[in-house]
Design a protein around this nucleic acid. Structure first.
Lengths: 234, 234
DNA sequence: TCAAAAGTGTTCGAATTACACCCATGG
DNA sequence: CCATGGGTGTAATTCGAACACTTTTGA
């Protein structure tokens, strides 16, 4: 038996939404598409799945090729398959979302790869159905962040409580009370207070915190969520 | 421009995990595969995506063809794409999961379509990577059911509190206290007490409840979950 | 009359909320 | 010395967990 003769083949693509956080705003990484159609238009990171590679492998390869990023948090999100979504040829796109510490790669990304960060609310028009992908990714991020502490993937090794809180506020588009936030986040047992301070944000300086990596890995499956129940988006 | 010349095409398939609940156990619907390879082996409902149809359309079509089911709860779950997952030809499978009221279709399914229900814990060996699909679907169901009242899709129009509780217990593989369960489920405001009783389960009979459909639709986005935090699987 | 499932409240501790002032520092 | 963001506590309420007995009725 050589194959399923009567079935139509099609192209499979990967698209990645890459989230970052600059301390103020949630951002996404975009590039100008390198080939026709829609060449030079803003686009998510994308490419085709090769024969012989799995979807996860393809996603990692494409991410590496377009941005140099490796070993980052990457999760499959959804498959988009409207017949006309790509005007040239029938292509289904398996969409991934990634979370990275923006500062760790900033120069590399913008200089070597000419990728550009945009505030999530100020992104330019995107090709094809990429806008829908971005909104779905945003929603999925809220979902995930409410249940698992994935949010730390967006922060540097050391961060302040205020940065963490701002990040939650960005993702959920809501204001949080800092005392309650601190109590709750400390109760998770995930944070380890450092002895040094971030002096860039204020005169007084704010203590850095690090992540308890062991607990973090164990906690991925048992996290109650940071939002007060009444505001849970999920 | 005619196409992306250098890219490899592949087949896209749909596979559906169909969940049902018989009042006692969570079940999945399987059929014997109708074509080679692995003909007559137990399999999820599956088929290929045609040109010109979207993934959702394909999923609905395949479900209709193989089971006669229409208009049921169907949600995309995950794309499986290991290169060798189908031994005959490179095929990625976009996997859906469905929730149905088992009694509504029981005869139709088992007689006309020779599909068979299996308790989720007693299912036979499945072809390809279908076993992994089923475990992921189970997990996803826990996830969903903890946050949205999708669980009612598995029950008939009228059901008793005990049935509902048993269903939650099945999905989360845990025992729940009936008084606490009742209080919590009633607090959701989703249930409407009927005036008639189900007499099949006991001498005394248990009141039926129906779903407040308007509230149900609005509540899909604001549901706190039925599990005590300590036991939340998610 | 009894077996079997239905139905029903209370108490306790933990978690969540709302809320406002002092601290440390660099300029 | 003062403007700025950092850091802290308490009281009221709600929510979740644990727990056991009475009711109904068909056989």
């Amino acid at each position: 038996m050589k194959g399923y003769n009567k079935q139509k083949k099609l192209l499979a693509a990967i698209d990645c939404i890459i989230f970052g956080f600059d301390g103020q705003h949630l951002k996404i990484l975009l590039i100008r598409r390198g080939f026709e159609p829609a060449k030079n238009k803003w686009s998510l990171m994308g490419g085709f799945v090769d024969s012989g590679e799995s979807l996860d492998t393809a996603a990692n390869r494409i991410l590496k090729q377009l941005t140099g990023l490796e070993g980052i948090y990457l999760e499959q999100m959804y498959a988009f398959g409207e017949p006309k979504r790509d005007p040239i040829e029938r292509t289904i796109s398996i969409c991934y979302f990634a979370l990275i510490d923006i500062h760790r790669y900033e120069r590399q990304l913008t200089h070597e790869y000419q990728a550009e960060w945009f505030n999530i609310n100020e992104a330019p028009a995107l090709i094809f159905d990429h806008k829908a992908m971005v909104s779905m990714a945003r929603e999925k991020l809220r979902y995930r962040a409410g249940l698992h502490p994935v949010i730390f993937e967006l922060l540097p090794e050391k961060f302040t409580i205020t940065q963490l809180q701002t990040l939650y506020e960005e993702i959920y588009m809501t204001a949080l009370d800092k005392r309650n936030f601190l109590r709750k986040i400390m109760a998770s047992g995930l944070l380890i207070k450092q002895s040094d301070k971030d002096k860039t944000g204020s005169r007084k300086g704010a203590f850095y915190y690090g992540l308890d990596k062991k607990k973090y890995n164990h906690t991925l499956l048992n996290f109650t969520g940071m939002l007060p129940p009444a505001r849970r988006i999920i």
